[in-house]
Amino acid sequence: MSVLGRVRARPQATAGVLGRGRARPEATAGVALTLPVAVFFVVFWLVPFLAAIYLSFTDYEMAGTPNWIGLANYERMFADPGFLNSAWITVVYTVCTVVPTIVLALLVAVPLSRPGRLNRGLRALVMIPAVMPLAATSMVWVIIYSDRGLANTLLGLVGIDPQSWLTSSDLAIWALVVMVVWKSMGLFVIILTAGLQALPGEVYEAAAIDGSGAVTTFTRPTLPLLRRTLLFVLVISVAGSMQAFVPAFLLTGGGPADATQVLPYYIWANAFPYEHMGYAAAMGMVLLAAMVIVSALQFGFLKGGDE
């Protein structure tokens, strides 16, 4: 019955029948090839995600069983100075890493994307900081920020007294910011350079014929054409900063006096050393919600200009 219906629905009956004959091994292969991935995503992504939502409404503490406590974790958060402090530090950290990184990366990428042997060499060199592992980078910057390290040496050259970068609660967050700007800059220079090199050359020829200077060439044809690449860089750098755990863990351990306790660090500390898993899950949900809202805003903001 169904086979007849199907054949009648298609004008070229034979092709339809042949197609069905082939569809079976194709479907079997499709299921077989995707089955491991499907099982994996269900077990290690979907189930944990649903479990995290559930845990966020419980008082789960690792030992014992989770008890449903409704919105208590969410209410607790907004009266918890530790959470409010972490949320604020995450905002400051994100804004102060993302904006300078992208501006500096653009200032390097635009001249660097021009052809020439020197530029090709410099482009290769930029990859070295980009490929440094963050863990290794953090250890190196611990040395750079040490009392007799490079940071204080450079300050000494311009007559500024040595600072205790990682142990001063005023400076520590800025020490992290500078390291992260440095670390991400290499990456973003590469991405932006690739984006710039993919732009059509005629645009620049036209701009040159029009007699545009460097600045107008940048603001008129370059920047709008680069919008897609910029959006990509913005989205990944904001998401990366909002989730950043390693710099705070390795450079300062969240200190001194919680001055670098970004939200991911606070979530980790609550979940693992302290085993407040229900509460940590709730904070994770808030972080996730914030990330989704911020990405949506970025897409809306940069897509809006298209019309």
């Binding site: 991935v37 499907a38 995503f41």
Partner: peptide
């Protein structure tokens, strides 16, 4: 949809339940 959906998830949400699993 499942694959695309997971692209948006942060590890900070998943580490707790994945650890329990």
């Amino acid at each position: 949809a499942l694959v695309i959906g997971t692209l948006a998830l942060t590890p900070m949400v998943l580490v707790i339940p994945v650890f329990l699993i």
